Amino acid sequence: MATPATIVILYYSRSGSTQQLADAIANGVRKTGAEPLLRTIDSDDDAASSRDLVIANTDLADCDGLIMGSPTRFGHMASGLQKFWEQTSREWLRGVLVDKPAAAFTSSSSMHGGQESTLLSMLVPLLHHGMLVLGIPYTEPELQQTTAGGTPYGASHVEHAAGSRLSKHELSLAEELGSRVARTALRLAAQKETKSL
């Protein structure tokens, strides 16, 4: 039996915090029955994670949703992720990501490290590709309870507040973001299948 939805989790991680968020998001995707596909970017940085495969442009066409993560870089995504999106004009012209759900996640070393502007900057190329952007609604109790990371714009981790490990609220919010994108992708796939019958 084929997997009903594949969610690409595209991230760059230098110290491991963003990778921890990616893993928690992947757990949330799995809880829905969808398949997470962890991907990273090609990087010259020896400290960057090389555990997962480098993303290929074909992954965009084949996925049912995408969640992108980066540490904050002066309130913006890492340059390698920006470079990747600058090389997706062909996919943009073909509309391979149109109407697929998307979300973002980030990490920073301090509470005021630019998380929200980083999350918003990551959403810009996803909006240009016609994706359906999702965040974390305030109906999630952990969003009200967190003293570290977690925003309505996406999942996040603050290392200064909680150390290098995710806090229980950060972990829960990351899993919920993965589940939310996957549930949306599954609903959209079911609607498409119903229309084709």
Rank of each mutant, 00 (worst) to 15 (best):
Q87W: 13
A189G: 10
V133I: 14
G135S: 03
L120C: 06
L188A: 06
T106P: 04
Y138D: 15
L177S: 02
G113T: 07
L119Y: 04
P101R: 08
E176L: 13
H128W: 05
T194Y: 15
P125M: 06
H129V: 13
T106V: 13
S156C: 03
M122Q: 09
M131G: 06
H160P: 15
A103M: 01
G130N: 11
K168A: 15
G113C: 05
E140D: 13
Q145P: 01
G163F: 08
Q144F: 11
K168Q: 13
S89T: 14
L186N: 08
L188H: 03
S196C: 14
T147R: 15
P141G: 12
T88D: 02
T106G: 06
E175L: 05
M131F: 14
F105D: 09
V181R: 00
G95P: 04
E170Q: 08
G163Q: 12
S196K: 14
K100C: 05
M111N: 02
R187Q: 09
G149A: 02
A174L: 09
G114R: 04
T106R: 05
S107L: 00
E116K: 01
G149C: 02
R183W: 03
K195Q: 11
S121D: 06
W92E: 05
A103V: 00
L132C: 12
T106W: 02
R180T: 04
S108V: 01
A104C: 10
A104S: 08
A190C: 07
S109A: 01
V96R: 08
K192L: 11
E170P: 13
K168W: 13
V181E: 00
S196N: 12
L143Q: 08
K100Y: 01
E176G: 12
A103I: 00
F105A: 06
M122A: 04
E193Q: 14
S167T: 12
A182N: 10
T88F: 10
A162V: 10
M111R: 04
E116D: 01
T151P: 06
E116A: 00
S164F: 14
S117M: 15
V181C: 00
S110Y: 00
L123R: 14
E86K: 04
M122K: 09
G154P: 10
S108I: 02
A185K: 01
A161G: 03
L171M: 13
H112M: 05
E170N: 07
Q144V: 13
H128G: 10
T146Y: 11
A190K: 11
L173F: 01
A174Y: 08
G114A: 05
A102C: 03
K195I: 15
R165H: 11
A155D: 03
A162Q: 09
V98N: 11
R165D: 13
W92Y: 07
S156T: 04
Y138E: 14
G130Y: 04
L188I: 06
G95A: 15
Q144D: 13
K168Y: 14
Q145D: 13
H157W: 12
G154E: 10
Q145F: 04
E176W: 10
Q145V: 03
G149M: 01
S179Y: 08
S109D: 02
P137G: 03
L143F: 05
M131Q: 08
T139Y: 04
G150R: 09
S167C: 10
T88M: 09
V96L: 07
H157N: 11
M111T: 00
L143D: 07
H157Q: 08
R183E: 12
T194H: 15
L143V: 05
H128I: 07
V96G: 01
R165Y: 15
A185D: 03
T146F: 12
T184I: 05
H112A: 05
S179T: 11
Q115G: 08
